[in-house]
């Protein structure tokens, strides 16, 4: 084995190890605090995970003082956190799960989302997507929204769990995001890396494939596509003692977010106001 081969073997072993760690976490964890004491919910959701909440966030971030320092400010604004698997789909998974979670009990929102979802097929074929390759996803999203009020919170969490079909909904999030970007290329092109000469190549490389992380243009696109206000708390290595808050989507400056997410470099999770 030459040095190159050895390096490759090491890299492959390391990658396999990381993949093992990633996959040992649930796709969607339990919501901290509310559910941790509920034994039934634990049975459903705690197959592989430990208790989660700001306590576990603290444990995870331990050693990075600048991060840990910001947790109290987060706790003063938010009541809970739901961990989401860090598999590159965490932004889309967090967004889509929380959207369905809110809409499950909010009839007006559900109606509004249904209107958007029912228009998705023409909206997307309009920018070049082929009906045959996307209608399974648009149909599934409409069907899920239509039956959402009949689902319990547990049903929803099972749907988004390991054996559910939630990845089809997560991917629809990617598709909707790409569709929105393609509808407004002039607005978004200045914000994507120069190595992509047009929006189609950006979307086919960075948005459409599962496992590709989302940057700010994707966050803005998905928020505006669904007309949902998304509040992202950034926890980073700045000197501040508080997280910085960025809000995307429609609404007044001081309106609360429909969806609140916690972002630390490379990873999104759901937080609850």
């Amino acid at each position: 084995m030459d040095a190159d081969d050895e390096l490759r073997a090491q890299a492959a072993a390391q990658e396999a190890e990381i993949e093992g760690i990633v996959k040992s976490r649930p796709l969607i964890g339990p919501k901290a605090r509310d559910f941790v004491s509920d034994s039934e919910m634990r049975q459903i959701l705690h197959r592989k995970t430990q208790e989660s909440g700001f306590e576990s966030l603290r444990e995870e971030l331990e050693g990075t003082e600048a991060f840990v320092r910001k947790i109290p400010s987060l706790e003063s604004k938010y009541t809970g956190i739901r961990h989401v698997r860090g598999d590159g789909n965490c932004f889309y998974r967090s967004f889509v799960f929380r959207m369905f979670e809110v809409a499950r009990t909010d009839n007006a929102l559900r109606t509004r989302l249904l209107d958007v979802a029912r228009e998705a097929l023409p909206y997307l074929t309009d920018v070049g997507y082929e009906e045959v390759s996307i209608e399974t996803f648009t149909d599934f999203c409409v069907e899920t929204l239509e039956s959402l009020d009949k689902l319990s919170q547990e049903d929803l969490e099972v749907l988004f769990g390991e054996d559910g079909e939630s990845d089809y909904l997560v991917w629809f999030g990617r598709l909707a995001c790409a569709g929105f970007l393609k509808h407004q290329p002039d607005r978004f092109l200045p914000f994507i890396p120069e190595s992509f000469c047009d929006m189609n190549s950006f979307c086919s490389r960075e948005v459409e494939p599962m496992g590709k992380e989302a940057d700010q243009p994707q966050v803005i696109a998905l928020a505006e596509y669904w007309q949902l206000r998304v509040c992202v708390e950034y926890i980073d290595s700045s000197d501040e003692s508080t997280t910085s808050t960025h809000v995307f989507g429609p609404g007044d400056d001081d309106a609360p977010g429909d969806i609140c997410l916690l972002y630390r470099p490379g990873h999104y999770e759901i937080i609850y106001a």
């Binding site: 082929e130 390759s133 086919s204």
Partner: peptide
Amino acid sequence: ERWSPVQS
């Protein structure tokens, strides 16, 4: 161009 669900 790699696989994604828009392929067929």
